[in-house]
C-alpha cells in the first residue's frame, strides 16, 4: 500500500509533461532562493589577525586582571590555581549570555556584565545572573621571543572540560 502511494507520488511529479514542468520550476525556484541566501554570506572578511603578543609573563602580577587588551577581546589574568600553580590565561571579553562586554570590578573581584547582570569570578566561571556558562579562554603560549602570544582562533570552554588543555594556559 505504502509502495503504491509512493509510486503515485512519483508519477504525479515525473509522469506527465506537466508534472515535469512544474517540478523543474519548483526545483529551480528553490535553487535560486538557496543561491540568494548563499550570496548573502560574504566569502571574504576583513578581520584583524587572530594572534597578538601581550608582553612577558613577568609583566603580569598574580591576582591581577589586565585590562589593556580589552579592545582586542581579551583579558590577561594571572592567578595561583590550586592544582596547576601559578598560571596565566587569556579570557574572552564576550559575555556568554548575549555578547556584551563585562567590566572587571576590582573591589568585588568579579566580572560584571552591564546588560543583564551576569557575574563571573576571576577564573571566568559564572556564578550569578543569566549567563549559562563560563567565559571562554583563548589559546595562549610563550612565543619564541619569550613573550606571551594569544591566539583567538582557538577557544577553550570549561563545560567541555577543555580548560585542562595545556594550550589554554601558560605555567609560570
Amino acid at each position: 500500500m505504502a509502495d503504491k502511494s509512493r509510486r503515485g507520488f512519483l508519477r504525479t511529479i515525473f509522469g506527465t509533461w506537466f508534472g515535469i514542468a512544474w517540478t523543474a520550476l519548483t526545483a529551480s525556484a528553490a535553487g535560486m532562493t538557496l543561491g540568494t541566501i548563499r550570496f548573502l554570506y560574504p566569502n571574504a572578511l576583513s578581520e584583524p589577525p587572530s594572534k597578538f603578543k601581550v608582553g612577558f609573563p613577568s609583566d603580569f602580577e598574580t591576582g591581577q586582571v589586565d585590562n589593556r587588551f580589552k579592545d582586542q577581546n581579551a583579558w590577561i589574568v594571572r592567578i595561583r590555581d590550586p592544582q596547576l600553580g601559578d598560571i596565566i590565561y587569556a579570557l574572552s571579553t564576550t559575555c556568554t549570555h548575549l555578547g556584551c562586554t563585562p567590566n572587571w570590578l576590582e573591589g568585588e573581584q568579579k566580572f560584571k556584565c552591564p546588560c543583564h547582570g551576569s557575574g563571573f569570578k576571576i577564573t571566568g566561571v559564572n556564578f550569578e545572573g543569566p549567563a549559562p556558562r563560563p567565559l571562554e579562554r583563548w589559546a595562549i603560549r610563550i612565543a619564541e621571543d619569550g613573550q606571551l602570544e594569544v591566539d583567538k582562533s582557538k577557544k577553550f570552554q570549561k563545560e567541555l572540560g577543555q580548560w585542562d588543555d595545556p594550550e589554554s594556559y601558560v605555567k609560570v
Binding site: L40, Y41, L45, E47
Partner: peptide, 13 residues
Amino acid sequence: RFLLLGARFVGGE
C-alpha cells in the same frame, strides 16, 4: 547571526 550581520561582530558590514 552571521547572515544577519554579514560578519562575526557588529561592524561596518
